[in-house]
């Protein structure tokens, strides 16, 4: 059996305008790696929510790089997102409680984390060498 591993790395800045570039890369990956199109919006959504959290909460004003690493192996897509921002572990955020809150108390960050947890099969957080490393896994 031939096992193939496909990878793609992308470095972006912590600016909202970079979202278009991220989406273009994910679009291209789904085509090149022949991933199931029906799952594409979920991957785009999860990556946008992670990116938006970093841009909105992790950094102060300075421009900083964010690294995105995509890896596809054994029917599993792994996405690692690395940033140098403040420590933030989304797994510790109680998104279930956030979703049950009345409308006036809901925050978009909380909804975003709930979305990430719902559309991905596995999420892992590490703080290492001054970086937040969030790993998302999606099986097809």
């Amino acid at each position: 059996m031939v096992r193939t591993m496909k990878t793609k790395n992308l470095q972006i800045q912590n600016k909202i305008s970079e979202l278009h570039r991220i989406n273009q890369v994910i679009d291209a990956l789904f085509m090149e790696w022949e991933l199931p199109v029906k799952s594409k919006f979920k991957v785009i959504l999860a990556v946008e929510e992670v990116f938006a959290n970093i841009v909105n909460y992790a950094y102060d004003i300075r421009e900083q790089p964010i690294d995105l690493q995509f890896l596809f192996e054994n029917e599993m897509l792994t996405i690692r997102v690395l940033d140098y921002g403040k420590p933030f572990n989304p797994l510790q955020f109680d998104s279930e409680a956030e979703i049950k809150k009345p409308i006036e108390e809901k925050e978009s960050g909380g909804i975003g984390i709930h979305i990430i947890k719902s559309v991905m099969n596995e999420i892992n957080y590490q703080r290492k060498n001054g970086r937040n490393i969030l790993t998302l896994k999606k099986t097809f």
Binding site: F41, I44, L45, E48, E49, A52, I103, K106, E107, S108, G109, I111, G112, I115
Partner: peptide, 14 residues
Amino acid sequence: YISSAGIRVFLMVL
């Protein structure tokens, strides 16, 4: 397409 940023606006309108 909509993400949580857009959903937050829908909630604000409601």
